[in-house]
Design a protein around this nucleic acid. Structure first.
Lengths: 153, 153
DNA sequence: CTGTATTAGTTTCAAATGTAACTATTATGA
DNA sequence: TCATAATAGTTACATTTGAAACTAATACAG
């Protein structure tokens, strides 16, 4: 088999393209809530997880939103200091603690969710309904495959 | 119009999904060259830009690979210290300087490119040829649209 | 010309992040 | 039962990153 001369054009290189797209989208969204609510991306993600699925332990949160335990711990510390999240030590296993939003946290969560969904909807305006499904399917498969490759290596 | 109760499930939220996918892919790739060649992601990106398009000024590099000038400056400083990149001040405008790979840099670049392309190819194995085109098209349109939204805001 | 604005790029300082070590608690196995 | 291992989460330290201030050179307006 003849191997063509290989060239790498970063602009067409999938890992690079995904990275640039994700960064743009993530920053745009962050701009929408960071100023008003003073949350970092990890803090917002933790709140989103708790807003939907509380009570969760810190590990649960980490698993759910693919964030390592140090990042979760730090985000939670910041959120607790601001009275947005509360913690209750599990009496059966005192290493663990359930986390949840406080009323104040729930209020903030309820304010941010529509902003986030509105941004997502605006983003999706670029695509037809079919294309949205297609994109999500392709992303899912890519993600699963990338995880596979990573575990093999 | 009836507005349904809004809920946000991070796992299905496009900005979040893109971010997690891009991070996984980016880290997987980084693992393939970081150890052996000791490059950070920004350093590798600068080398990739120069390997393909040198000579470029630092600003050119930044525009091409969507990296701010501080990041470019730092990546270049590191690469020059290791003798992978060289700089030549533009005599007509002494604020500028052309950047290019040294022979050593070209050698390293030539070793990394096949690794990167191989990873991309493996990643693409998850998709058919058609799906690859589709994905790229959808990403392009999302990116363009996200930039538009950002500039409006 | 000449003072002001722009542009290219670097440096500085603070904040964010990653890795590894650490504490506290529970599980396990000889 | 008691020593060892494993788990949940935090802390400490080094590195990276980001924002703003800064230097140096050029452009431009009066």
């Amino acid at each position: 088999m003849i191997v063509p001369a290989q060239a790498l054009e970063l602009e067409k290189f999938l890992p690079y393209r995904l990275s640039v797209l994700a960064q743009l989208v993530s920053e745009s969204l962050h701009d929408l809530y960071a100023g008003r609510f003073g949350l970092s991306v990890p803090q917002w993600r933790v709140m989103a997880a708790l807003g939907r699925f509380a009570p969760l332990t810190a590990s649960d949160v980490g698993q759910r939103i693919v964030m390592d335990k140090v990042a979760v711990s730090r985000a939670v510390a910041g959120l607790m200091k601001r009275g947005l999240v509360e913690r209750a030590t599990d009496l059966d296993d005192r290493r663990r603690a359930s986390l949840g939003l406080t009323p104040k946290g729930r209020t903030m969560h309820a304010q941010i969710v529509p902003i986030a969904l509105k941004y997502e909807a605006e983003l999706y305006d670029a695509l037809s309904a079919d294309e949205r499904l297609t994109l999500n399917g392709l992303c899912d498969r890519l993600f699963a495959h990338a995880k596979l490759l990573r575990n093999q290596a």
